[in-house]
C-alpha cells in the first residue's frame, strides 16, 4: 500500500535538494556589496512611506472564507463521483439536492454582494 509512495518520496527529497542547492549556490556565488541606500525596499526610488504590514481590504478575507466553504463541498464530491455509476439514480438525486443547497448558498452570497469587487 505505502509502496506506491516510494517514488514520490524519493522525488520529494531530490526536489528539496535541488531547491536548497539553488538557494545555497546563489548565496555563495554572487557578490556582496551592501550599503544603506541599496538595502531599502524598492518603492520606485522614493523612501518607504508606510510599512506594508498593515490592514488590507476585507474582501480578501471574504474570498478565503468562501474558498474554504466551496472547497470542502468539492471534497464531498470526489468519492461520490468515483462511485457515481454504481450508485445510479439514487446517487444522482441525492447529489442533486446537495448541489441545489450549494447553489442557493452561492446565490445568497452573490445577491448580498459578496462576490463584487468595485
Amino acid at each position: 500500500m505505502l509502496e506506491q509512495y516510494i517514488g514520490a518520496t524519493v522525488m520529494f527529497i531530490m526536489a528539496i535538494g535541488i531547491a536548497c542547492g539553488m538557494v545555497f549556490m546563489t548565496s555563495v556565488l554572487g557578490p556582496k556589496r551592501h550599503f544603506a541606500e541599496k538595502m531599502e525596499p524598492f518603492e520606485c526610488g522614493e523612501k518607504q512611506i508606510v510599512s506594508p504590514h498593515q490592514r488590507f481590504s476585507v474582501k480578501f478575507y471574504l474570498v478565503a472564507v468562501l474558498f474554504v466553504l466551496f472547497d470542502i463541498e468539492a471534497v464531498f464530491f470526489f468519492p461520490w463521483a468515483i462511485l457515481f455509476k454504481k450508485l445510479g439514480m439514487f446517487g444522482f438525486v441525492e447529489m442533486l439536492f446537495f448541489i441545489i443547497i450549494l447553489g442557493v448558498g452561492l446565490c445568497y452570497v452573490w445577491i448580498k454582494g459578496g462576490l463584487d469587487w468595485e
Binding site: 514520490a8 522525488m11 520529494f12 526536489a15 528539496i16 535541488i18 531547491a19 536548497c20 539553488m22 538557494v23 549556490m25 546563489t26 548565496s27 556565488l29 554572487g30 557578490p31 556582496k32 556589496r33 544603506a36 541599496k38 538595502m39 531599502e40 525596499p41 524598492f42 510599512s51
Partner: peptide, 30 residues
C-alpha cells in the same frame, strides 16, 4: 542568475524570504 547578488532588503524577514522560493519550487517539481 548564478552570479548576481543575493539581495534581501532592510526589514525583511530573512528566514522566510529565503524559504519562500523553496516552497514555491518544490510543488512544481513533484
Amino acid at each position: 542568475m548564478f552570479t548576481k547578488e543575493d539581495f534581501i532588503p532592510r526589514g525583511a524577514n530573512k528566514a522566510l524570504h529565503t524559504l519562500s522560493p523553496i516552497v514555491a519550487l518544490i510543488p512544481a517539481l513533484i
